[in-house]
Design a protein around this nucleic acid. Structure first.
Lengths: 191, 191
DNA sequence: AAGACATACGGAACACGGTTCCGCTTTTCA
DNA sequence: TGAAAAGCGGAACCGTGTTCCGTATGTCTT
């Protein structure tokens, strides 16, 4: 039943795979240089391909962003349970994990903004980040509230949205996203 | 030195003033219908003028936004001292005032996003909102910290930035800006 | 009342970025 | 080695913001 599906539908072409890798590298570089909203033409030029090739491999910008940052998001997700084990208290683990997430976001110029965009093209981005990270956050929240350290029934999705929002414009000199996130974490505590 | 500057430079034309008012009304309507990023051509059409006329009266979108919302921003600014007088404690006044600001922001589709944009054209918007509201916020913060209710040295500008950020996307069904703002307010409290 | 002149107007034209589409090239497979 | 499939490039198109200039309108003077 698995495998020989009506005669192996011909594997992906070698040049195609090469282009996809070139595109990922080019996009990563462009994102660092000009943020995640770098013009499509720029990314194509960096990779030495035509714009059509970008759309063939990554139909929406969100797909490209997800592909570029997948590893880092995975790492963040996996850090959750580890922190829970290694930290003194669940609240400490939650705080550490959130700071990890914030560190990731603030170093990606424009990512937080993109996460927030209601542009349909970013639906994928939204879905991926949230599907992957919200459960981790929920687990940490649950542990902390069970331990009686924080308010009960905090919704992980809302919290992640909010944290993401606070990271917008984090590179402005007269703003301090980490400070604001710290206030939120403090606000979660039962007093 | 003041007044008669080289012989009265001819007053503004009547049609010009008429257009300006029509533009303000059209913009207000367009903002309600499609958010503060309503296409320039739409606003012009609603007002029954050409696009050039918009740019002549309001060189940047920020100027238009400021003009449309000036009254409401003023009201919010003036409410600060009043709340300080009428509330039980400075922290309560601060909380009420922030909620007032949040109410204003979340009812203006896209305003919070615009406030955050680093597009130079929004510099005016940024400047106006912040110049008008930050001092009020600072006064409230100062009263509350003097009363020993909240952490000392909280920067009003950072707080306003953060609150504004939290209001981005407030109309999404699975987000709750007010809840997040509440956490920040709670986080300010000394425990 | 009429002429002269500044003021303001409209909207065509341009700039820019995303997205689509199709003729051509490259790779794969037999 | 020669189809046929897969993939490619980039011209062309669309929607927005922005500029510019020939024309129209209001205002002031005589």
């Amino acid at each position: 039943m698995t495998g020989t599906e009506s005669g192996a539908p011909r594997k992906q072409r070698a040049d195609s795979r090469r282009n996809e890798r070139a595109l990922l590298e080019a996009a990563a570089a462009a994102f660092v240089a000009s943020g995640v909203n770098a013009p499509v033409r720029d990314i194509a030029a960096r990779a030495g391909v035509g714009v059509g090739t970008i759309y063939r491999h990554f139909p929406t910008r969100a797909d490209l962003i997800v592909a570029v940052y997948r590893h880092q998001v995975e790492a963040c997700a996996e850090a959750g349970p580890v922190l829970l084990t290694e930290s003194a208290t669940p609240h400490a683990a939650l705080a550490s994990w959130i700071h990890l997430f914030v560190d990731f976001l603030v170093t990606k110029h424009g990512l937080a903004e993109a996460m927030r965009s209601d542009d349909g093209a970013f639906q994928t981005l939204h879905a991926y980040f949230l599907d992957r990270l919200v459960p981790v956050c929920a687990e940490l929240l649950d542990a902390a509230s069970t331990a009686g350290e924080i308010i009960p029934d905090m919704d992980a999705l809302v919290l992640m949205h909010g944290i993401g929002n606070l990271c917008i414009g984090a590179d402005s000199p007269d703003y301090d996203a980490r400070l604001m996130v710290g206030l939120v974490i403090a606000g979660l505590r039962l007093r």
